[in-house]
């Protein structure tokens, strides 16, 4: 078996006296769709914040292809470094860039693939202009791939909610990540939009990007994902294929309560 793409080793984090996560171990292999599920307050988003470099864990480390990218000994790596290494994400509450068009939002995702600085920009040097054209084409191609091309010139925050979510995901994909973290991508979507999203996520995986998603609702993810990590009160209680997780008594207890 090839080594896992992403590995979490004994991750724990405390805020003040509160332990938000403890002893989280898991692996994500390349090409997988994996879900992190659990009741409200289980620490799912906190775990995403650790993987994407927004928080540094109190103990444990995150490795990408065997390289430690987050942990006490490498603190100082900002999210933009982690993004550069190939992990990007979306947010539970959509964070599109206000006042910018769909195209511009996606072009920000290509930021690391360009390097025009202040000087080149100020004097419109040919290198900067070529670069602009290149990433504009690239962004348009992505928008076409995900059926957003006709919305390219619209202000992103003016779009319907479901489309905003797709723009946010497309923007993240523009960073050309190895792994994309989707934080509750189905939240607030209606049934039709939800189904479209599932197709969309499969499309992402088929394009070669590994998907890790947080979901609140177990039913949503069961038909979609390869593996599920279940968290409860910051601790992992199951990490397996969906069918095994569904029949796991611990998981049933966490979701339905003791009888």
């Amino acid at each position: 078996m090839s080594p896992p793409l992403l590995e979490l080793n004994n991750i724990g984090i405390t805020f003040g006296g509160l332990t938000a996560l403890e002893g989280v171990n898991t692996q994500v292999s390349a090409g997988q769709i994996k879900a992190i599920i659990g009741p409200n307050g289980a620490g799912k988003t906190t775990l995403f914040n650790i993987i994407s470099g927004i928080y540094t864990p109190t103990v444990g480390e995150v490795t990408l292809n065997g390289e430690i990218i987050n942990g006490q000994e490498v603190s100082g790596l900002s999210p933009h470094h982690i993004s550069e290494k190939g992990i990007t994400r979306t947010f539970q509450t959509i964070r599109l860039f206000e006042g910018m068009t769909v195209l511009e939002n996606v072009m920000v995702g290509q930021h690391q693939k360009t390097n025009a600085g202040f000087f080149a920009a100020a004097f419109r040097l040919p290198s900067a202009l070529q670069e602009e054209q290149r990433i504009e084409e690239k962004a348009m191609a992505l928008l076409e791939q995900f059926d957003l091309a006709d919305r390219a010139q619209e202000v992103a925050t003016d779009l319907p909610f479901g489309l905003q979510r797709r723009v946010e995901i497309t923007r993240a994909l523009a960073t050309e990540p190895k792994i994309i973290l989707l934080d509750e991508p189905a939240a607030g979507l209606n049934n039709t939009e939800g189904h479209e999203l599932m197709t969309f996520i499969r499309k992402i995986r088929d394009s070669g990007v590994t998907v890790l998603l947080v979901e609140h609702d177990m039913e949503v993810v069961m038909g979609l994902v390869d593996e599920v990590l279940v968290l409860e009160y910051g601790r992992p209680i199951a990490d397996d294929v969906p069918t095994a997780v569904q029949s796991n008594p611990e998981v049933i207890r966490a979701y339905l309560g003791d009888e």
Binding site: I54, H80, E98, Q112, A121, A128, E132, R171, A172, A174
Partner: peptide, 26 residues
């Protein structure tokens, strides 16, 4: 010229959401 470039786009992204700009690699 600056605001209509990669640099300006990064700045506007920061204005919109600093954390989102970071995870986009800015």
């Amino acid at each position: 010229n600056v605001v209509n470039s990669r640099v300006g786009r990064a700045m506007r992204a920061i204005h919109g959401s600093e954390i989102a700009a970071e995870v986009m690699g800015v």
